[in-house]
Design a protein around this nucleic acid. Sequence first.
RNA 1: GCGGGCGUGGUGGAACUGGUAGACGCGCCGGACUCAAAAUCCGGUUCUAGUGAUAGAGUGUCGGUUCGAUUCCGACCGCCCGCACCA
Length: 859
Amino acid sequence: MSETAEQRYNFAIAEPRWQAAWEKAGCFAVADVPAGDRPKYYVLEMFPYPSGKIHMGHVRNYTLGDVVARYKRARGYEVLHPMGWDAFGLPAENAARQRKIDPRTWTYANIATMRTELKRIGLSFDWSREFATCDPAYYGQQQKLFLDFWAAGLVERRLSAVNWDPVDNTVLANEQVIEGRGWLSGAVVEKKNLAQWFLKITRYAPELLAGLAELPRWPERVKLMQENWIGRSEGAEVTFALARPAGGIENVTVYTTRPDTLFGMSFLAIAPEHPLAHAVAATSAEAAAFIAACAARGTSEAAIETAEKEGFFTGLTVRHPFIADAYLPVWIANFVLMEYGTGAIFGCPCADQRDLDFSRKYDLPVPVVVAPRDADKDFGVFDKAFDGDGVIINSEFLNGLSPRQAKPAAIAKLEAIGAGKSVVNWRLRDWGISRQRYWGCPIPVIHCPTCGPQPVPAADLPVILPEDVSFDRPTNPLDHHPTWKHVACPNCGAPATRETDTFDTFIDSSWYFARFTAPGAAAPTDPAAAAHWLPVDQYVGGVEHAILHLLYARFFTRAMNATGHLGLHEPFAGLFTQGMVTHESYKDGDGNWLYPDEVVKTSETTAVTAEGAAVTVGRIEKMSKSKRNTVDPGAIIDRYGADTARWFVLSDNPPERDVEWTEAGVQGAFRFVQRLARIAATIAAAPDATAPASLSAEAKKLRQLTHRTIAAVTEALETFAFNLAVARIYELAGALTGASPAAEDLRFTRFEAITTIAHLVAPMMPHLAEEIFATLRPGAGMVANRAWPEADPAWLVKDEVTIAVQVNGKLRGTITVAAGQDKAANLALARDAVAATLAGAAIAKEIYVPDRIVNFVAR
RNA sequence: GCGGGCGUGGUGGAACUGGUAGACGCGCCGGACUCAAAAUCCGGUUCUAGUGAUAGAGUGUCGGUUCGAUUCCGACCGCCCGCACCA
């Protein structure tokens, strides 16, 4: 491409030039509290973790957001479009341990690299609002928030079961436990109870669920995932009296969603961690051994899936609440979870598969209390429980009712006899936020041996991470720092120690969108700025954050509301979740992964190395470093320019789906960039054309297409159908081929068309848009500061329409008529058009849809 | 197992609230320009039969509703995603 470079649009010169021009003009900077009366629009993309380099997923994510931001600006909105860094996290610590680099140095160096890379994409960020979550100015405000939450009763410190690595002396996340062993040490991981800080997100469970209904601009899929995660379930708590108390415990309460099946109960089962189980274990070595065996069992998904149902009979029995003199055995069972419900269930084997499996294994009775409506007299349950709708049988006062009717009836009876009540249960659990890590926000708490945990006084905030730390031991450097943790108790002044755990990094990203509205505020938020800009009007990010991040941010918004930092409940009014960027993967003969630029494609499905060795072309999957199927955005921008990269990630398919990065596709995008520049040059070279009094048919057609394209692209951008916007622009550009005509009216409509294209492509290819607009209308300013084109309704009206003519629903011809013509005339025309097919057959019915279709129903 | 989504040419994908299936891109084929190539420009491209205007088939499979179904309904097949001994 170098030999003819002088004839081409030179992106390498133009792109940095326009980026500098936008920056100089301050196009994208806004005030915390703007003075004017333009309507606001807040566009936000999920901020990146500074891992080292930008990848194609970032390019796609930020390009999608940038299209919205630039489009909304052109539509007259004042747009807040900030960028920052989610900068705390484990990779920085790993770099410190493995390569002896200070996490701070590593992180800020990565930020510097990635900022430079991002700027080359030409994104319309207000860079003046940039911050990193590892800046003390940010995390200090976060500590303030935590203390306010604490004061408001939203924080709790309590014992919690964790994965404990006995060699590394640290808590491991579930993802860090591999086949029951620590990922670094290889030691068998233990379950241990540790004091951990929790945020009481469960208090907001009903609100977080109900709030989903107020989010029409969120994907249904994401709302459903959150709904399932929050997991509301309606049922009842039933209290069973023990026939004989054990360890001072007199009764056991279970949670059930099927109180209608109480008469089908054949046992009661408790979790191994249930207090009653401990009481039994105190006097039974066998029980203690069973409980220990359960605790040692892995908690990985695979282990759970293959786990056999196992139980231990305690020797205890409980009374049935409805049946006099009925006693049911109490078992400790490995499939009952302490964390859900009350940690105890009643077993009804006929209506629950797990209970049935358990009953069969231990020879417990299986009374049948629900039967299908159409069941015969001798309906029985053998190896498959019946949990469908049906009719209650063998259940005294519930007989004949459906399960749905029987539930309230059973609950009413339980309430009447004081044995139970209606209860709503949630799957959502409180958020454990303690991490035994260095590179995170210090938890601003001081532990005093006499006063207990004390908040760090406001005057002493922020609690800053010490820099002189050592990673020579595997445990948390904060813990074995010689001086940092030793302080005086703020309450009594006695020697005390700082909390050495840091926050889960999900906290950092739970409120950054609010901080962006006033990044320099002395408090966590500036209420006026937050009130002006929030909620985020359009949030864009990966679907992998559908649950945790988005749920935490929704919770934080409510907690910040409760503590006076924000005035709203839902942070993100609109959410768009984009698909991944994928690429083919390649392996050499020895099974090593190869980078795309190490292979030469020899056909659609085959490839060889540069040396000619055989290459296995693998699956198309998400770009990942481990599989080496990555393409470096920097290299792409060097070769093709940012606009080409942007255009490609937008053009091929809908943004919510995965896009496959292909060299052919990129080249197609690059050709279009050059073609547009060429068309613009041709047209600009033509002498000025003024609007002629009348237009020829050809000129009229072009003008109609131009205005239809404005309307279609506008509609497409409003609905995230960016691939359709691209297609419509291709279509209009396609109509502009050929040499510049002599006719004045055509010169005018062509000029109008290309000028329109310059504006329509601007959100997607902003540099090229500026470049061609500058050649077309020198001195008319930058596209970035110009208004979006308006489609003239007069030019959207079609004066001629082609109507399909069908016989019995089959297309037999078309007629072209003036639009909006009357029925009779068109029917007659249509009949002529298909006379041969009708061949005089009797017409039973004539269907006429104006300007669309005529259908003759012939017998 | 539960919940949700998706199946359209060689390929990525279009098709408004049921109304001419395949827009637009990629690829491929043919042509122009060129000593040649690249780039560019023009034309063609769902399949089958036919030189041909044309005819038939066609949106995972089977059935239904309708004048008319990619679109609505039912069953099935396949793929993808989320959750999961959740009581």
